[in-house]
């Protein structure tokens, strides 16, 4: 059986995590992983562990802040929220991504008349 799911492109996980936090507000690591999987509708392979390494990076850069709280089922969990610097970075990276995606789409478009 052929696995049609795609690996996450290198360097895009940060962008996805930031976007998720911006849309959803503060979330714990598990929530972020589940949300990305849901949005991907099963088309993306998410190694959930790497979400935590990504979050560590974002926290170090101060693009994401953390706070301990309680999850829905009353468990102690660390919640992540995007900071102002993170929002700025997200805007810049999203714009960059759109530009690159546009270029790739144009490159892949069949030449008219062929």
């Amino acid at each position: 059986m052929v696995d049609t799911r795609s690996q996450i492109l290198q360097g895009t996980l940060d962008l996805m995590v930031l976007k998720t936090l911006e849309q959803m507000g503060p979330l714990h690591g598990y929530g972020i992983a589940r949300r990305i999987e849901q949005v991907g509708e099963g088309a993306l392979v998410v190694n959930q562990g790497t979400i935590y390494l990504c979050l560590t990076r974002l926290v170090q850069k101060k693009w994401v802040s953390t706070e301990w709280g309680k999850s829905d089922n009353n468990r102690k969990a660390k919640f992540y929220a995007v900071t102002k610097a993170g929002q700025k970075q997200l805007a810049a990276e999203a714009e960059n991504w759109e530009r690159i995606a546009g270029v790739i789409a144009r490159v892949l478009q069949p030449v008219e008349g062929s």
Binding site: G29, Y30, Q48, Y52, N73, R75, K76, A77, K78
Partner: peptide, 17 residues
């Protein structure tokens, strides 16, 4: 310790779901 706690919480939430 915090990292471990976080992973434990993750596993517990995933398991319950």
């Amino acid at each position: 310790r915090e990292f471990n706690e976080e992973l434990e919480a993750h596993l517990a939430m995933a398991e319950e779901e």
